[in-house]
Design a protein around this nucleic acid. Sequence first.
DNA 1: TAAATCATGTGGTCTGACCACTTGAATGAA
DNA 2: TTCATTCAAGTGGTCAGACCACATGATTTA
Lengths: 179, 179
Amino acid sequence: MTESKRPPSKFVAAISHIQEIIKADRIKRGDKLPSERELSERLSIGRSSVREALRALELLGLIETRRGEGTYLRDFKDHQLVPLIGTFIFNDDQKKEHIHDMKAILELGCLALLAVQPDFNQNSFNYTEAAFHELMDASGNSLLKKMWLIISDYGGDSGGQADERLTKLLSGIRHINHS
Amino acid sequence: MTESKRPPSKFVAAISHIQEIIKADRIKRGDKLPSERELSERLSIGRSSVREALRALELLGLIETRRGEGTYLRDFKDHQLVPLIGTFIFNDDQKKEHIHDMKAILELGCLALLAVQPDFNQNSFNYTEAAFHELMDASGNSLLKKMWLIISDYGGDSGGQADERLTKLLSGIRHINHS
DNA sequence: TAAATCATGTGGTCTGACCACTTGAATGAA
DNA sequence: TTCATTCAAGTGGTCAGACCACATGATTTA
């Protein structure tokens, strides 16, 4: 019993196909994609399925739709993003390390920002999961909080114990803060 | 000319509505959502629009669909990382600051991790958007890179100019690194 | 020439129809 | 009764066709 149980639905397949077409047709950022009806024909799937795929891609920010005009490949500063997201979403496997690192980066970055504040007292921070939780809360940045929450949730353990890196980092920041 | 030109499409509105229903019905993780047909009735929109919304939510990892059974609110433990951004971008109001801060945090955290490396040369880093881009690339962490890319894209400008915070931070890190 | 009009193409949405699959109740055989 | 089979209902998956709203460019008109 592998995990590959469900044959990819049309709309998932459509996403891949559309990406292939983008490559094949050499569609660059800002360029127009084939119309939904044309895609429907070329992929031999219904327009609804095409739309579901496009909507998903749009939600991810990969494309942009303009009523009456067409669908455009979003003007991303760097492309490469398409395959990246694709691989990440579809075959997410040994990415746990990435997630773990991601968590550390969020915490580090957050602390770094905080530590530059004049009234920050390093000693009052104890590097526990709960402490970070409060920190995220206090930040007032819901995006940050959400991200951290989910990543924490997924990343599992690892958190809680004070990282050496954190201590060292904070020391440094504190130092420049007093100089 | 404000930016709020286009009235939110049905499928975007549907996403919000569905989230409201989830709240109103007190649907917990793992619980079943109303069927597509029921949602269609309750939201007074066509089933296709409901589906487009659901497909998007599914791609974001927020829900899970099981053919013949129904649609379920996904168990948070599962991977749904990209998501945040997507969900976030939707009610993008005055969240731009958050996104901007988020970007800074990612960059700070990343730099912090990097700076602790013995062979890191602070002077070779110039805080440009391109430099960060390289950094993200070099990290080998596709999740990090992707998030940064997306956030950069949405955050717009802001990047590029060396932040004072970054400079100070790096100085501190460098200091402890030499002591 | 310049403005108004129209045809065409595009995304946005709805409806109704099947299909494939799951589940649980109804039915039948042991 | 008990267990296996069958069957009806519900659900997501997909499709085709029909409109609508909008943008664009060619056509017609003043």
